[in-house]
Design a protein around this nucleic acid. Sequence first.
DNA 1: ATGTGC
Length: 485
Amino acid sequence: MSLPPQLRKVAPTVWELPVSYKDGMLVPARIIATEGLLAGMEAGVFEQTANVACLPGILKYAYCMPDGHWGYGFPIGGVAAMDPTSGVISPGGIGFDINCGMRLVLTTLTEEEVRPRLRQLVDLMFARIPTGVGCTGFVRCSRSEFRQVLEKGSHWCREKGYAWPEDLEMTEEGGCFGGADPDAVSDKATLRGFDQIGTLGSGNHYCEIQVARPENIFDAATARSFGITIPNQVVVMFHCGSRGFGHQVATDYLQSFLRVMTTKYGIQLPDRELACAPFRSPEGQAYFAAMKCAVNMGFANRQVILYRLREVFSQIFHRSPEELGMRMVYDVAHNTAKLERHLVDGTLREVLVHRKGATRAFGPGMAGIPACYRETGQPVIIGGSMETGSYLLAGEAGAAATFFTTAHGSGRTMSRHQAKKMVRGQKLLGEMEQRGIYVRTDSWGGLAEEAGFAYKDIDLVTAATEEAGLSRRVVKLVPMGNIKG
DNA sequence: ATGTGC
């Protein structure tokens, strides 16, 4: 595939499309990638990042991260910071799965201890953590109780005994975005979401047993600070979001914005999928308040999954979760919009940062991250494909360039449809088992869609974020067992 | 991603 001729290299890992590239661009578009990753990007990534640069109030640049690929409106990997006074909020810049994110949990077990009981462990995980489209959880939640979940996120979990106090500290924003308003949420969204707390879902959502092997440690001091202290230490990583609830919130407000964007606010954009409303408008504020409900639902969802996970490990290894050292390293979202303070042209100001398939990566010394990570920078959890491995990174000062944002995962290289044509789920499962990875799934087609070859090389993506100064590699985590929807 | 497609 040929790159747009207007694309200019402005730094070894920064590629820029000028405002002259497309009518309506207000700022240049910047792709963060190595030459190799850039060459593999779909044409849609350049078009969509340039489209994002047309959104009213966008500051500095429209960005796409090295794992970027084609998405709804924005590319997945898209980052856009808006002036909250004159700018817009766009659901396409956050994604349908609001607060899709990653959580990483430690154990003090080693690969040698877990390997003999791996099948038993993964089987019990699969039995206790609901997976698949439309799955529901064990938490019984009335409508009024669900409002509490939406307002409080992980705090609700703590009140109900599903969280350790320290879990909240180890969650981005303490596991709760303030200002969530359940009245901004449709009944339809509530109806889809109230029974989905503590469920994994489908697609690329999974829960994985991983091992930190000594040869995969890049930064030993930071690894120690993050709790990786034992050779061949076993950890658990999982990836999921706000399920049908967040999806319905996104759908509701995309429709609402499409009705008013042009007629009421006179906004013209190159793509309907960029539907947006002025951030300060009633519609924009309602979406922001509803989006925060979905963010909090996502945090609560991952917290209840952790509660179940602790039960599962405790049952298999006959020790309490505390004795098994099942502490959280961190929980970090990659589909949100948030008001943050950033330096823009030398002035510290409040901006609305959209991150869609992009992870907040606060660097060393910054406020807003747990005190224990103040010197290292924020842990960044990057999920790879279930075959190739994942990474734990640390936020770097250089991420100031991207409003303190880095990549979120591998990024697809082919469509789900294409992947499914190339491999059968049963065959893939057999091959993975040969390589010591035990997988349980309730969808063979879904498994095939997640094959390693359908994703960019996670080693190259994380190396690119390091070269760009956004985040540094701490440890690569290799899969042992996986449950997926 | 998603009661997978109005």
